[in-house]
Simulated assay, not measured.
Amino acid sequence: MNIIVTDTHDLFVSQTIQTQKSTVNTFDSDAPRILVVDDHPMNRMTAAALLGIEGYEVIEADSGFTALKLVMQKQPDLILLDVMMPEMDGFQVCELLKQNEHTRLIPIIFITALNDRRARIRGIETGGDDFITKPFDHVELVARVKSLIRQKRLNEDLEHAEQVLFSIARAVESRDPNTGDHCERLTHMGKNFGEHLNLTRNQIRDLMWGGYLHDIGKVGIPDAVLLKKGKLTAEEWDIMKQHVLIGEKICQPLRSMGGVIPIIRSHHERWDGSGYPDGLVADDIPNLAQVFQVIDIFDALTSERPYKKAFTLEEALAIMAEETAKGWRNPKLIQQFTEFICSFKDWQLCAS
């Protein structure tokens, strides 16, 4: 068991801990690692003793600066963090960790003698996950630690699953070398156009994820159909249209994909009901699917393909206007997109 000690008292406690086995918890392999951060050795000793008895691996830090170094070196599963420390207080440590992509999922429990409302609000604002007031109850401490470590592992499993989906999406894109950085461009434009429309942060995130995942279902389409250079037969086209349903099935098990699935399924619908797979009409088409469809079409028109040249921005907008006149697109949304493109003054699209 890896326990960092700072004085003879801690050494005694660590030796005691190492000779005991938990009667409350057992862990499959590596024991969850807890970082205890407090500038008072006796406080650290108490927490380390209680957690060690429960089978946790305990490491200690006597300052905020030391804590930040140990987090990067040891990657703890949870942090017990004192608030009142010299030089760098617990709130500052928490804020830095939650802003870091590599440490943001580590649960942080503030342990403090403070019991006022302002301190708790500050802790929540900096990203803290829980609060325990000293002197803390043994049973309560263990229960909160177990709960947050369980939640962390669920979050990690979810993040790993999401990463697998994005990897599949990148593999799908690489099957067709003609698309280039299509997904990257859609992600970037989705963010910008979403902000232009004043969409919520979650809606913008779904748009950006849709940039990568909208065609993930093409993983189930045979190369003979997906990469065919000539015109598809009616039978082949029916196979190709299945990619939206395949993509929906791939992503459906993940709750975090709830806002992306309508984009995946419905980004080929048309305003007049002539699209697929459901023949949805007008506002029956999910709004984010409509927004995504606009940027997807625009990127396709302004990108070079073996079968077409890249249209200029003016030409692309003109084609989209023609399709709107045919009844294929949402007129209001196309107008908003045109205004969005025109807002980039260096493109000078609105001079006429």
Rank of each mutant, 00 (worst) to 15 (best):
M1C: 06
I3T: 15
D10W: 05
Q20E: 14
S22Q: 12
T23A: 13
F27G: 10
D28P: 05
D30H: 13
V36E: 01
V36N: 00
V37W: 03
P41L: 04
M42Q: 13
R44Y: 09
M45E: 06
T46S: 05
A48D: 02
I53K: 11
G55L: 11
E57L: 03
V58E: 05
I59T: 08
E60V: 15
A67E: 01
L70Q: 07
L70H: 06
V71L: 08
Q73H: 04
Q75M: 09
P76G: 02
L78D: 01
I79M: 11
L81R: 11
M88K: 14
M88P: 03
G90M: 05
V93W: 01
L97W: 04
I106D: 10
I111G: 02
I121H: 06
R122W: 07
R122L: 12
E125A: 14
E125T: 05
D129F: 08
F131I: 07
H138M: 02
V139K: 15
L141E: 11
V142M: 12
V142T: 15
A143C: 04
L148C: 08
N155W: 07
H160R: 13
S167G: 12
S167M: 13
I168G: 10
R170E: 15
V172H: 07
S174A: 12
R175K: 08
D176L: 05
R185G: 06
L186W: 02
G194S: 03
Q203M: 00
Q203A: 07
I204N: 03
I204Q: 03
R205T: 06
R205D: 14
M208D: 01
W209F: 06
G217H: 10
V219R: 03
G230V: 01
E235P: 00
W237L: 12
D238R: 13
D238H: 12
I239L: 15
M240A: 12
K241P: 07
Q242H: 05
V244T: 15
G247C: 01
G247L: 02
G247E: 05
K249E: 11
C251K: 03
S256A: 15
I261W: 06
I263F: 00
W271V: 02
D272K: 13
S274F: 04
G279L: 01
P286W: 14
N287S: 14
V291T: 02
V291W: 01
V294S: 01
F298V: 03
E304C: 08
L313N: 11
E315N: 06
A316H: 08
E322D: 13
T324C: 10
A325V: 04
W328R: 07
P331V: 08
K332Y: 04
K332Q: 07
I334E: 08
E339C: 04
Q348H: 14
Q348C: 11
Q348A: 15
L349Y: 11
A351S: 14
